[in-house]
């Protein structure tokens, strides 16, 4: 499905060269429009709502994310990133709203959607009493891939993700970084068009993070879309070419990285301004702190 030749060509045309901030900075709005006309957006969300008891977790989100990009969903803790991603991927039912992936409605057309997306959720467990190899074999076969093909892809993914030595170890005995990597492998196994990763770098050591990064860059270079959430701005700034800022259950800004950053020196500054945390420094109230006069 995702590797039909014409599909790849189209994606290659519409995708900008990876990580060329200058290219998208040249005409961000034009590039976005070009994406929009090249085919259906990777994700289209309209009026998405979710309430847990009295608390509104997602407060009417409208968002269109172009295909073939490396997209960062950024926001402070509790902003609604995980809730939004769960609803977009069909793991949580929204109170209201429309979600389309590649032009297919997530809730009305799950057959088209589920085969096109890969998911790495945060805070949900894996089948941890399987070994890494067994877990990939299980997921691939559930996805309907032929057994031989699953085993071939699983072996390659385990190699690339540096998990070959632990392929027969139970996932319950894996470290955090290894779990993220095996989760990523399970999400990539069926070669999805759109990959959703919730905090893929949280608690991951630098070596594993670099491995994950390498795989994701290679994957987007082929024209696929990665949408990942994070609250580490430096990471998002170095990886993504498109950003959506979410705070208190609403989208504060979205668009090409350069456009969202605007005149701010870094994405971090732009982000603090957008979520209204600018100038809320730890200054005035703690004037007794430091200076050596221990009292």
């Amino acid at each position: 499905m995702a590797n039909e030749p014409e599909d790849i060509e189209r994606r290659d045309e519409s995708a900008p060269p990876p990580h060329s901030a200058a290219a998208s900075a040249g005409g961000p709005a034009a590039a976005a429009r070009e994406d929009a006309f090249a085919g259906p957006p990777a994700v289209r969300v309209q009026g998405l709502w979710k309430r847990f008891g009295d608390q509104i977790a997602v407060n009417g989100i409208d968002l269109t994310l172009p295909a073939g990009r490396f997209i960062g969903l950024v926001g402070p803790n509790g902003a609604g990133k995980t809730t939004t991603l769960s609803m977009v991927t069909g793991l949580l039912r929204p109170d209201s709203g429309l979600v389309e992936i590649g032009g297919h409605d997530v809730w009305r057309d799950p057959v088209s959607v589920k085969s096109r997306i890969g998911v790495l959720p945060e805070g949900l467990r894996l089948f941890e009493r399987l070994s890494g190899r067994e877990l990939l074999g299980y997921m691939g076969r559930l996805r309907g891939l032929p057994g031989g093909e699953v085993d071939k892809r699983a072996g390659q993914l385990l190699d690339v993700l540096d998990l070959s030595g632990a392929r027969n170890k139970l996932v319950v005995d894996y470290s955090t970084g290894m779990r993220k990597k095996i989760g990523l492998a399970a999400a990539l196994l069926h070669n999805p068009e759109v990959l959703f990763l919730d905090e893929p770098f949280e608690g991951v050591d630098p070596v594993s993070a670099q491995t994950i990064r390498g795989v994701l860059e290679r994957y987007t270079a082929s024209g696929a879309t990665v949408i990942f959430s994070s609250h580490v701005m430096e990471l998002v700034e170095s990886l993504c070419d498109w950003v959506a800022v979410i705070a208190a259950g609403r989208i504060r800004a979205d668009g090409p990285l350069a456009e969202v950053r605007g005149t701010a020196p870094s994405l971090q500054d732009a982000f603090l301004e957008l979520v209204g945390a600018r100038g809320r420094g730890a200054g005035a109230d703690l004037d007794w702190l430091g200076g050596g006069g221990a009292r």
Binding site: T89, P110, V111, V113, K114, P121, L124, L126, R143
Partner: peptide, 15 residues
Amino acid sequence: QDTSAFWMVASTIAT
């Protein structure tokens, strides 16, 4: 019995 790992099952059930 699957605990929250049920998401892996849920993400492969479309029909």
